[in-house]
């Protein structure tokens, strides 16, 4: 269950966010959304793939943390075992909501910060304060606001990025065959990746266009990130050996 409420420094002045990273805290996700501006940081630690949204069929880039639901291979002893945590995870349990306000007869949609008060991270004893003693925003909350802002703008960029990729036929479905040390063979389906043959035979004109849009670099970062699939397999082997 989730319950998103508009954050305010009166009702929520005593709330803290537990910064532990664990299944109990709801961090046991196996992938999360990402976006081109985040690729540089993400590709240092995670494979970046593409996936279709179940509700809309729209393709989005995702960072992969494991091979199956409820199995995040980066959760270790209450911590996230990587130097960079993708923004879509960092921001939990905060979301962006929209509020309509009417000023001088003009109705505007404003972005507002909301909190899922049902999240196990929300409590009154452990973790980071949301507000300072007299109601000001804590550094943590300022950080979260920045994260959400970056995430909002980043995700908005995705549809243009994906359109550029599909126009050049640069996405293809991929099935990952994963063999583990225990001999089990697994197939990971439903993901998409960059079609390198098509990329390599792209016309100069199209390449230049992708470059001018800033997407060429993003494409190569996605390709470079694939090496981390081996890292995930190693983590999985460690997990099953325990």
């Amino acid at each position: 269950m989730t319950n998103h409420v508009l954050l305010n420094n009166i009702e929520h002045k005593d709330l803290k966010i537990n910064l532990e990273r664990s299944a109990q805290m709801g961090d046991n996700v196996w992938y999360t959304q990402t976006f081109p501006m985040e690729f540089r940081s993400a590709q240092a630690h995670y494979p970046i793939l593409f996936q279709k949204d179940n509700g809309t069929g729209q393709i989005t880039p995702v960072t992969l943390f494991g091979f199956e639901n409820d199995n995040n291979l980066f959760l270790k002893n209450g911590k996230w075992d990587a130097a960079y945590i993708p923004l879509a995870v960092q921001r939990m349990p905060f979301y962006i909501g929209f509020q309509e306000s009417t000023v001088d007869g003009v109705t505007e949609k404003n972005r507002v910060l909301t909190l899922d008060v049902e999240s196990p991270k929300v409590n009154k004893t452990h973790g980071a304060d949301l507000f300072l003693e007299y109601g000001g925003n804590s550094d943590y909350l300022e950080h979260i606001a920045n994260v959400l802002e970056a995430l909002h703008h980043g995700l908005q960029e995705n549809s243009a990025f994906i359109e550029a990729l599909t126009n050049c036929e640069l996405l293809e479905a991929v099935t990952l065959d994963i063999e583990l040390n225990d001999g089990s063979k697994n197939q990971l389906m439903g993901f998409y990746t960059i079609n390198e043959d098509n990329l390599n035979s792209l016309s100069q004109y199209k390449l230049a266009k992708l470059h001018s849009q800033g997407y060429l670099q993003a494409i190569y970062m996605v390709i470079a990130s694939q090496v981390h699939i081996n890292d995930l397999v190693a983590r999985k082997n460690t997990q099953i050996a325990l």
Partner: peptide, 11 residues
């Protein structure tokens, strides 16, 4: 309704 809103992907 979804197809009319989001289209269908080619891949």
């Amino acid at each position: 309704n979804k197809i009319k809103q989001f289209g269908l992907s080619q891949i």
